[in-house]
């Protein structure tokens, strides 16, 4: 019976036109490909995949570097020529940079400094000078004093808002000191401390500017330390006093702006 059927199928196949034969063979091959292909494919994907998912918490403080994106140890504030500032009316300037990692992100640059010396603190955006034009800062890394990178002030001074300033008085050489009775003070110092309260010049004055990242890379800034001569800020009087060898501590930090 089977043989008969096979013979009949053969006969039928031979009676087909060439195109129909091709058609039939193609159909058979395709079907076979599916039958073989699917289990083989399934065999190849015999594996387990396990996944876990979490967030990367953004850093509280942003990366701050010196000029030329060098490590912050190259941000050196020593050797400030006070007399030069006064006589030449040329403030001292230092370059640093901040990276947010994303463009158009708002962030705060905070300056915290003690107030021993009546400096004025001003912050500007900086731009690298590559064409030999005039510049405000000649940056050289500590280990490579011959590598010069030049920066100029780019735009108006940033709005550096003082957060805990007291009234400026003549007796303090016209400088603003930190308040000793506000919230910043009370969360920093223990008013009940038995070993005394800090000297007012050692209480840091906080000031802050909010800026927007230009791109994902570093934004450059120039910190300007000046001295405004006036009847309240008599430099000569300050300079001849015993306190002409004072020093200040300056912190710069940057963090993503929060409302």
């Amino acid at each position: 019976m089977l043989l008969k059927n096979i013979a009949r199928w053969k006969e039928q196949f031979h009676s087909l036109k060439k195109a129909q034969k091709i058609e039939l063979v193609l159909a058979a091959v395709l079907t076979l490909a599916i039958i073989i292909g699917v289990p083989v494919y399934a065999w190849f994907v015999q594996e387990d995949r396990v996944e876990a998912f979490t967030k990367i918490k953004a850093p509280i403080t942003l990366d701050i570097r010196a000029g030329k994106k060098k490590d912050i140890e190259n941000f050196v504030l020593d050797g400030i020529d006070l007399k030069g500032i006064m006589e030449n009316n040329e403030p001292e300037r230092f370059v640093f940079c901040v990276k947010t990692g994303k463009p158009n992100v708002e962030y705060d640059i905070q300056l915290a400094h003690t107030t021993n010396i009546p400096f004025t603190y001003t912050l500007y955006r900086a731009a690298e000078v590559t064409d030999g034009g005039s510049y405000h800062v000649d940056f050289t890394p500590i280990d490579y004093p011959d590598e010069h990178t030049y920066y100029k002030i780019d735009g108006a001074a940033l709005n550096l808002e003082i957060l805990n300033g007291d009234q400026a008085t003549a007796s303090h050489y016209g400088r603003k000191l930190a308040k000793n009775n506000d919230g910043y003070y009370s969360i920093t110092y223990d008013s009940q401390a038995t070993d005394g309260i800090p000297e007012i010049y050692a209480v840091p004055l906080y000031s802050q500017a909010t800026v927007t990242a230009i791109d994902a890379d570093y934004d450059f800034f120039i910190l300007e330390l000046g001295w405004t001569a006036s009847s309240k800020t008599d430099f000569d009087q300050w300079n001849i006093a015993d306190n002409n060898k004072e020093s200040d501590v300056i912190y710069i930090s940057a963090s993503i702006h929060t409302q």
Binding site: D48, P59, L62
Partner: peptide, 15 residues
Amino acid sequence: NDIGTGVDYILFRMK
């Protein structure tokens, strides 16, 4: 710092 500012989430994938 670059990871902290440039990456929001990570997928741990194990085969």
